[in-house]
Structure formats: C-alpha cells, structure tokens
Computed example of a mutant assay.
Amino acid sequence: MSAARATELRATELRADCTVDAHGRITFGLRLDSAIHPQLLLRLRPKKGQPEQVVHLVDLEPAEDGRRRAVLDSEPALAEGRWDTYLLRERGEERLRLRPGLRDQRTLVDGHTRDRSSPVAVRIPYATKDGYLAVRAWLRTAHSEAGAIDVTDRSMTVAARLHGASLGEGAAVLLRRRGEAGVVQTLEPRAGGDGRDFSFTVDHQELAAAGGTGSGSGIWDVFLQPAEGAPRVRVGRLLDDLADRKEIFVYPAATVGGVTLRPYYTVDNDLSVAVTRTPS
C-alpha cells in the first residue's frame, strides 16, 4: 500500500462504530471501498518491554447498508487486558489502527443487575487516551461486583454481589496490604438471603492501626474468600459501561489520628483503600 493511500485511509475510513449486546457480543461496522478479504484485527496489548503474542482476527463481511461488519462473538472469551483494534484490508498488508465512531453500549449500563456464571467474562469498547478504539476485557473464575460505598468519619461500608460462585461456610472479606505478604485484615461479610449479596464494613481506626513494616502508609487490596479454603476473589466494579473508572468514581477521604484513608478503584477497576500517614 502506498504512503498516500495509507494517509487517505487514516483520514477518512478508519473510524468504526460498535454495538454491544446483553451477551457481550460486539458488532463493528465501518465503510470500506473495494477490498478482497478485509479483517478486523484485535491485538492484546503487551506489557511494557514484552513482545506482542496474542491477536484475534474477525472477517469483515458485507452488510445491507453498504458497510462492512465484523461480529466478535461472546465465545471464546478474550483474555484479560486491553485489546487494540486494527483494519487489515488484505492479508499480508499493513494493519491500520481504528478510531472510534458511534459506540452503542446501552445494554452494559445495567449489567450489574444480571447474574453471571463462571467464568465471568466482560468486554467494554472504549476510546484510548490518544483517540483510538480499543476493547477492555476481564476474564475471571468469579467476581465480586462492588455497589454502593458509604464513607463516614469512622468507617467505610461496601455493598457487593458475588458472580460465578456463592457464599459458603467460613466466607471472609480480606484486606491485603500490597507488597507485604501475610499482612491481612479479615472481616466477616454480612450475607444476603440468596447467598450472593453481601456487605462489609471497614473500621478506619482499626485499618489505620494495622501493621506492616513500613511507615504506616500503603495500599490495601480488597478480596472476598467465598468459603473457607476457597480461592480469593477480587472485589471491583466491572459490570457496566465504564472501561476506566479510577478518575471518575472519586470517594471522600476520612482522617483518623493523623492517618488519611480513601477507597478508590485501581486501573483494573478493582477496589482498594489508600492509607496515608501524615508526617509529624
């Protein structure tokens, strides 16, 4: 492909619309001129310094409105991570990055109201910071979906629902201090009637006094252990239309004895609590 042709495509044709249905199926649509075998290419973004390893190809088929359409079925599930989208006009040609067009994600808004079986697979199309179209995917054996978070001067209460598993005997909420193995605060969840809804309360003073070898500042990651001996399940918020909520869902901080505590969502939309000790 000539440089002029590539530039023309980038300016006019490389904008894809997408629609998500309630089952996680994503339909992409874009306008193309003549192409023998165009494909949508999704690339799992590698970690910094690592080579690209995983790509997924979907044929772009002619649609009734004159566009090309690619359907990314809900199965097989995408590996967890961020998937960048590209147009591959012909096999062997240069792949061209796609920009977002219209994104219809209305079915995702109330996704937290639908129970999910194991494994819990989530996909959310979004625009990257530099203006390209990508898909954020999560794939977990089970998931604890955080709901309302009530922060007061003395405590933080979190409502949540378990997907892909049920609460059993010995269930516990675990706050694990990041980077310090074995430093864990254990809380007893208050279970709802169906074995999936639960809530828990974090006492600010107790967490502020909790240990570790550091200065008292640190991050506590929140997990649910659904039953005694069961694998831990991260508590987070994945089941709606927001791919990145860290800068959108901002909660108030509380200060206890010179220590400030604030719940927040990580870059992976998992729930954590930041504890910061004010220098004396």
Results as ranks from 00 to 15, higher is better:
residue 155 S to V: 02
residue 156 M to L: 13
residue 160 A to I: 08
residue 160 A to W: 09
residue 161 R to E: 14
residue 161 R to D: 02
residue 162 L to Q: 11
residue 162 L to N: 14
residue 165 A to I: 12
residue 165 A to F: 09
residue 166 S to H: 13
residue 166 S to R: 14
residue 168 G to K: 04
residue 168 G to Y: 09
residue 170 G to A: 15
residue 170 G to D: 08
residue 171 A to S: 11
residue 171 A to M: 03
residue 172 A to Y: 01
residue 173 V to M: 11
residue 173 V to Y: 05
residue 175 L to A: 09
residue 176 R to D: 13
residue 176 R to L: 09
residue 177 R to M: 04
residue 177 R to L: 04
residue 178 R to Y: 02
residue 179 G to T: 03
residue 180 E to P: 02
residue 180 E to N: 06
residue 181 A to L: 04
residue 181 A to H: 08
residue 182 G to E: 13
residue 183 V to L: 08
residue 183 V to R: 05
residue 184 V to H: 01
residue 184 V to N: 02
residue 184 V to G: 07
residue 184 V to S: 06
residue 186 T to Y: 03
residue 187 L to F: 07
residue 188 E to Q: 15
residue 189 P to W: 04
residue 189 P to A: 12
residue 190 R to G: 05
residue 192 G to N: 12
residue 192 G to R: 01
residue 193 G to W: 07
residue 194 D to W: 06
residue 194 D to Y: 01
residue 194 D to C: 08
residue 195 G to H: 07
residue 195 G to N: 07
residue 196 R to L: 10
residue 197 D to M: 06
residue 197 D to R: 07
residue 197 D to V: 00
residue 197 D to T: 05
residue 197 D to P: 10
residue 198 F to L: 12
residue 198 F to S: 06
residue 198 F to T: 01
residue 199 S to R: 15
residue 199 S to F: 08
residue 200 F to Y: 15
residue 200 F to I: 10
residue 202 V to F: 11
residue 202 V to C: 13
residue 202 V to T: 05
residue 203 D to E: 15
residue 203 D to A: 10
residue 204 H to G: 15
residue 204 H to M: 11
residue 205 Q to G: 13
residue 205 Q to N: 12
residue 207 L to W: 11
residue 207 L to S: 15
residue 209 A to R: 14
residue 209 A to H: 14
residue 210 A to L: 14
residue 211 G to E: 12
residue 212 G to V: 04
residue 213 T to Y: 12
residue 216 G to C: 04
residue 216 G to I: 00
residue 217 S to Q: 00
residue 217 S to D: 06
residue 217 S to W: 08
residue 217 S to Y: 02
residue 217 S to T: 05
residue 218 G to Y: 03
residue 218 G to S: 04
residue 219 I to Y: 05
residue 221 D to C: 03
residue 221 D to Q: 10
residue 221 D to Y: 00
residue 221 D to M: 07
residue 222 V to R: 00
residue 227 A to R: 08
residue 228 E to T: 13
residue 229 G to D: 13
residue 230 A to K: 04
residue 230 A to L: 00
residue 231 P to A: 07
residue 232 R to D: 12
residue 232 R to L: 13
residue 232 R to S: 05
residue 232 R to V: 09
residue 232 R to I: 00
residue 233 V to H: 06
residue 234 R to T: 11
residue 235 V to Q: 06
residue 235 V to H: 10
residue 236 G to D: 10
residue 236 G to T: 05
residue 236 G to M: 07
residue 237 R to D: 08
residue 237 R to Y: 06
residue 237 R to P: 05
residue 237 R to C: 05
residue 238 L to H: 12
residue 238 L to A: 11
residue 239 L to F: 03
residue 239 L to A: 09
residue 240 D to A: 11
residue 240 D to T: 09
residue 241 D to C: 12
residue 241 D to K: 05
residue 243 A to K: 02
residue 243 A to C: 11
residue 244 D to N: 04
residue 244 D to I: 03
residue 247 E to T: 06
residue 247 E to S: 01
residue 248 I to S: 15
residue 248 I to R: 15
residue 248 I to V: 14
residue 249 F to L: 08
residue 249 F to C: 02
residue 250 V to L: 10
residue 250 V to P: 12
residue 251 Y to C: 03
residue 251 Y to R: 03
residue 251 Y to G: 04
residue 251 Y to M: 10
residue 253 A to D: 15
residue 254 A to V: 00
residue 254 A to G: 12
residue 255 T to W: 00
residue 255 T to C: 02
residue 255 T to K: 01
residue 256 V to R: 08
